[in-house]
Amino acid sequence: MFAEQLVNGLVLGSVYALIAVGFALQFSILRIINLAYGETMMASAFVGYLVLTHTGLGHVAAALAAIAAGAATGLLLERFTLRYVRGGDELTPLMITIGVATLLTSVFSMMFGFEQRAFPRHYTGGILTIGEIQITLVQLSIFLIAIVTMVSLHLVLRRTRFGRAIRATADREHIAAAFGVNVRLIRVVAIGLSSGLGGLAGILIAENFGVVSPFIGTTFGLKALVVLIIGGAASLSGAVAGGLFLGMLEVMSSAYFLSEYRDAISYSILIIVLAIWPRGFVPNAVLR
């Protein structure tokens, strides 16, 4: 049913947009492509999973735990690795994040095995019906959380003094410092914030699909990249639009054709876009 796929596409797309926004935030401030971002999401999802399966606390607690785990992962990554290679070439941080990504994947697969695990579903049984379209409460929650988060972030960046400080740091770090911005603090906040967003996205994905696996990190990391590069060149809203677009594309193509090639299509788009616009990608434009 088309309407159903539309809803699925929007929900998935909203999460992809969230991933892209977090990823873009990190990229603008750190100036690196953090290939461990997907794995941060995966680790956070597992933390949420553990909260749900080992404690009596509910989904909200799990989500908060996931956000905290994400933020912690990002902060540790910056503090103990990336900080030491600041100002160097651009391949070095890439290699570090590749290493960390692999580390996380292998550690989590040793802890949890290679199989996917079922992520406990939220059984409120609520279904919203608009005309012919049925939206589950879970889907609605995911969509709303993603949208609200992105809007809030947008408002913070655009309307607050602190948000301006973040954008100024992303634009020209040393000049921002010359006008009183505590750049180090901004970096830490930006990384914590963006990784926390990643953690949120991770658990939202787990809620959406009902599974967690140690190997989803690479997949989602690459998707974040695709969204960023497709939409990020324009603006923050571009990243959002890119995310929605990718979500729709994947759901539609899964439902109607070529479901196995879904990922290949995303990656091919990535290569094509990069090939045509190698530098068309302005990092701090994303924060507007």
């Binding site: 990535l270 990069l274 090939a275 530098r279």
Partner: peptide, 24 residues
């Protein structure tokens, strides 16, 4: 195809290539 890319972006694009092949 990728000649205008360098550094990070080149690496990313080549990553994508491998993944595409795997799916195919």
């Amino acid at each position: 195809i990728l000649q205008r890319l360098s550094g990070m972006f080149f690496a990313i694009a080549t990553l994508g290539f491998g993944e595409v092949l795997i799916v195919i």
